[in-house]
C-alpha cells in the first residue's frame, strides 16, 4: 500500500475516499486498539472510538481546513484518547489510570463539541430509522422543501392536508421516541448532552 502524507490523508477523508479510509484503518487501528484495550476497553470499544474519531475529523474538515503540526497518527490517537477518556468518565471509571501508548498532541475544544453533536445525531437517526417508511419519507421530503401536494402525489396519499397532518404526527413520534431514550435522559440529567445552542 502506498504511503500517504498527513495532508493526503486529510484530503482523502474530506472526499470520502474509500482507499484512504482503508489506509487509515490498516495503518492506525492497531495503535488505537492497543490503547483502548490497555485502558479498560474491549476490541469493540476500540472500534467504536476509532470510528467516532474519524467522524469527528471528517466533520471538522467539512467546516474548515485542518493544519497538522504532528503526524496524522498522533492527531488521531489524541482524539481517540480524548473520546475514550470521556467514555470512561461516563462509565464512572474516573479513577481509571490512562496508560498512554503513543505521543499526544493538544487538541482544540471544537473537537469535543463536534463529537457531542455527532453523538446527538447518532441518537436522533437511531430513532428516525425506527419510523415507518412513509414517516421517514414524509419528513425527508418536507425538509427538502418539497410541496405537500407533490409529497401526496409521490407517496400516494389522499390530500395535502393529510400530508401535513401525517408530517406532524411523524415528527412528534420521533421527538417523543428520542426523549424517552435512556441515553437522552442520561445526558440531559448530566447536562452535557443537549446544550442549548445560541440561535
Amino acid at each position: 500500500m502506498q504511503e500517504l502524507t498527513a495532508q493526503e490523508i486529510l484530503s482523502g477523508l474530506r472526499d470520502k475516499n474509500r482507499k484512504v479510509l482503508d489506509f487509515i484503518y490498516e495503518d492506525q487501528y492497531y495503535r488505537i486498539r492497543n490503547f483502548v484495550t490497555r485502558n479498560s476497553g474491549t476490541g469493540e470499544d476500540a472500534q467504536d472510538v476509532f470510528q467516532d474519531a474519524i467522524l469527528v475529523i471528517f466533520q471538522k474538515l467539512r467546516k474548515e481546513e485542518i493544519t497538522l503540526e504532528c503526524s496524522f497518527g498522533t492527531y488521531l490517537y489524541s482524539i481517540c484518547r480524548l473520546l475514550w477518556l470521556k467514555q470512561l468518565k461516563m462509565k464512572s471509571q474516573t479513577k481509571a489510570f490512562i496508560e498512554d501508548t503513543d505521543d499526544t498532541v493538544k487538541l482544540d475544544d471544537s473537537l469535543d463539541v463536534i463529537h457531542d453533536k455527532n453523538e446527538r445525531y447518532n441518537l436522533y437517526l437511531k430513532h428516525f430509522d425506527k419510523l415507518s417508511y412513509n414517516c421517514q419519507k414524509i419528513l425527508e421530503l418536507f425538509l427538502a422543501r418539497i410541496s405537500s401536494k407533490e409529497i401526496a402525489r409521490v407517496l400516494g396519499l389522499k390530500s395535502e392536508q393529510y400530508v401535513k397532518k401525517r408530517k406532524h404526527i411523524c415528527k412528534e413520534k420521533l421527538v417523543e421516541s428520542i426523549k424517552s431514550d435512556p441515553e437522552y435522559i442520561y445526558y440531559m440529567n448530566n447536562n452535557n448532552f443537549h446544550k442549548l445552542k445560541k440561535l
Binding site: 436522533y124 428516525f128 445552542k197
Partner: peptide, 30 residues
C-alpha cells in the same frame, strides 16, 4: 428555546445526507 434547539437539530441530522453516507462507509469498512 431548548425544545426549538432540539427540533432544529433533529431536522439537521435527518438532512445531513453526507454525514449519513460517510457513516455508512465507516460501518461497511468495519
Amino acid at each position: 428555546a431548548e425544545e426549538y434547539a432540539l427540533r432544529l437539530e433533529i431536522n439537521e441530522a435527518i438532512q445531513d445526507r453526507e454525514l449519513t453516507e460517510f457513516r455508512e462507509m465507516l460501518d461497511d469498512q468495519r
